[in-house]
Amino acid sequence: MNSVISVTNLSKVYGGGHRALNDVSLDIRAGEILALLGPNGAGKTTLISIICGIVNPTEGSVIVDGHDIIDEYRITRSKIGLVPQELTLSMFVSVWDTICFSRGLFGKKPDPAYLEQLLKDLSLWDKKDNDILTLSGGMKRRVLIAKALSHEPEILFLDEPTAGVDVELRKDMWDLVEKLRQSGVTIILTTHYIEEAEEIADRVGVINKGELIVIDEKEALKHKLGKRQMIVELEESISSIPQSLTLWSLELSSEGDQLTYTYDSHSEHTGIAELLRAIDQAGLLLKDVNTSQSSLEDIFINLVNTPSQVS
């Protein structure tokens, strides 16, 4: 797949000396939905802001659809729409005026029919003459989305689109994202909700302390970094793990009636069969056996909390 955005060795040091991004490189594929995960202050907004032209990079380069974001900013910026994290809107302007403004700012000729459809898709059409001031927070976020889409961008950045948004709007938003993706728009979103990334993204990148620690297909990530666990419930509690089972580094529950075996899901040799046989030979009676796979959330917490990097 060809990449629509290429970030190479990007670093950002803010005025105060804080290094918000450190040598980040990534390729964003045309037409994909990429979710960027990371704790507060990880550098997600900084990364997006640099690509959109709001923040100057300290080092490194960004190429959008074959054009450099600094030397050919007119071409790159006209392809990009941005929904910012904060609700930054001029309050005393009507919804209609503000999206006409946005479209013009991006150099597009007026197109009332397109904008009308856009507002209808976002359930804002009946509010078109209202001043932004009079809208609720969720509606303001819709207006921000409408502004970002007003110039028909090929790439859409959504910086925490679901912060402060109710279930219904969130669903509307994902429907819209899906519709946009089908029309070929590349979508990059940041979020703190891992279920969200799990639900809609094709690929997931995790940023922590200014570094991109991993980026991969959602499923591959789960496969590669996920752990599987097998929980063996015993008929009778035991006080310690029998000598013959030490090889599997099992964990015994505090009640002594559960043994947990953790293994790499993608290893050739899981050792399950041998373990079950050994349990049998040790004279323990099985009551039940469960296996579970770690969610993206477990992976995320694991990644962010361990200092070592994943290659």
Partner: peptide, 16 residues
């Protein structure tokens, strides 16, 4: 617009 933050849009637009 600097004060309210709406300047982000102007900065991200293809204008000189």
């Amino acid at each position: 617009p600097r004060f309210t933050g709406t300047i982000y849009e102007t900065l991200s637009a293809p204008i000189s």
